[in-house]
Design a protein around this nucleic acid. Structure first.
Lengths: 223, 223
DNA sequence: ACATTTTTTTAGACAAGTCTAAAACTTATA
DNA sequence: TATAAGTTTTAGACTTGTCTAAAAAAATGT
């Protein structure tokens, strides 16, 4: 595996995240927003990553990962997500506080450290956001499917299945704009009755009851 | 507290270590050796640290820390030594494997992280080498005095006192070349009978029994 | 289909940190 | 004390990653 700078690793992890978030290819501007820099800087970096054969890059088109890039990204993500688990499980951070810190810890490379950390944490398969942690060989477990009820506020996912397949239920879902494959973001949860407000496909707000949420399975997105 | 780059922090911690190791002022070459770089690079960096008022620097003379530099170094060292404790206590590294890794972890700055880590580790007062860990306010505990028996192989220290003050014992010590203030390095320990081989003042090898070692108090050196 | 807007890339500059080679200074030695 | 030897600093170059401004390409709207 090629040795990468912290900046290169950041870009690679970000691209992986964006790609597996759905997009086939990712735009320069999207990357710029995600790594908090300017498009010009992204162009420069993309050239370098392309030279190292980690991404497929054609000017003015998007980028995608090569097989080598994908594998490399998985090892970076492994480090990142193990640290996330450490921060939440051991240091009692909230799942929404750990991103920035994990990003710094991710760049600590000592391979033995990662293995020991993994062991110490009990070989977790998923991070606090529900995203899978690649194993030593870069292998991913399937993403866990959790019910919409269990999705934390602010987290988004893709609707993958429903438990209640009655016509009534499906008709209701159809009517409010929920369907298999839809992107769903949890905007708010009402403690009182377990109902919640959703944002479907970044477009439509929908209010669902606890009962409805319990019957919808979601696959969490990274981030 | 000024915000420093990872490189600046490394230099500062190194200078602190060298200064408290005994030297009043530290030479460019000593620093170069310690941070594994060239004298020319050190000169450049010293100018920068002097500009930030973290060190007292006069060309062609040594450097020493200003009060601000000392304080800053203590916070860097706090991070460093807490990570050392984590690596040894939690991840089961040996005390001699942790230097390089702690050096990387040291640069992760999130202040809340350091506080949580401290708490998680049970507010340790000393790191695995016996060096004191500054508290949140940069305050140091005294160095612990431990018996020569407890000093790990490869670790060095200074002999600070003896429990047995009988003439016989002192005469023996004198004869083999052990005295208060001597530098002692533990070369080897014999499991079988608890005896050990020492290296006194980087000059003389001495073999002492378990009984003798138990009566000698040592103050550990950094590193 | 053409003009406008948006996105992306290039060109050139800059800051940090490192290096080598050579100059300046200090220390040791004869 | 003069010269040699060793140390430290300067000068100048290079790398990495960033930026702004401007040019080039693509997308959009009428």
């Amino acid at each position: 595996m090629k040795s990468l700078s912290a900046a290169e690793e950041n870009y690679l992890r970000t691209i992986y995240k964006l790609v597996t978030d759905g997009l086939e290819k990712v735009s320069t501007n999207e990357i710029a927003a995600a790594v908090n820099t300017k498009a010009a800087s992204v162009s420069d970096m993309l050239k370098k990553l392309a030279e190292k054969k980690l991404i497929d890059y054609r000017k003015y088109y998007g980028v995608s990962l090569t097989e080598e890039g994908r594998k490399t990204a998985l090892f970076i993500i492994r480090r990142y997500r193990l640290w996330e688990v450490f921060l939440v499980d051991k240091l009692k951070f909230n799942w929404d506080e750990v991103n920035a810190i994990a990003e710094e810890l991710e760049h600590v490379k000592a391979p033995l450290l990662v293995r020991r950390l993994d062991e110490y944490l009990g070989f977790p398969k998923f991070d606090p956001h529900g995203d899978p942690i690649p194993d030593e060989f870069g292998e991913l477990s399937d993403k866990p499917r959790i019910t919409l009820q269990e999705v934390p506020v602010g987290q988004s996912g893709k609707i993958v299945s429903v438990s209640d397949t009655s016509a009534n239920f499906l008709k209701y879902l159809d009517k409010v704009g929920i369907y298999i494959g839809a992107k769903v973001l949890v905007l708010e949860k009402i403690e009182y009755d377990g109902s919640q407000e959703l944002f479907i496909d970044n477009q439509k707000k929908v209010f669902v009851s606890k009962e409805v949420a319990a019957n919808i399975q979601v696959m969490l997105h990274p981030n």
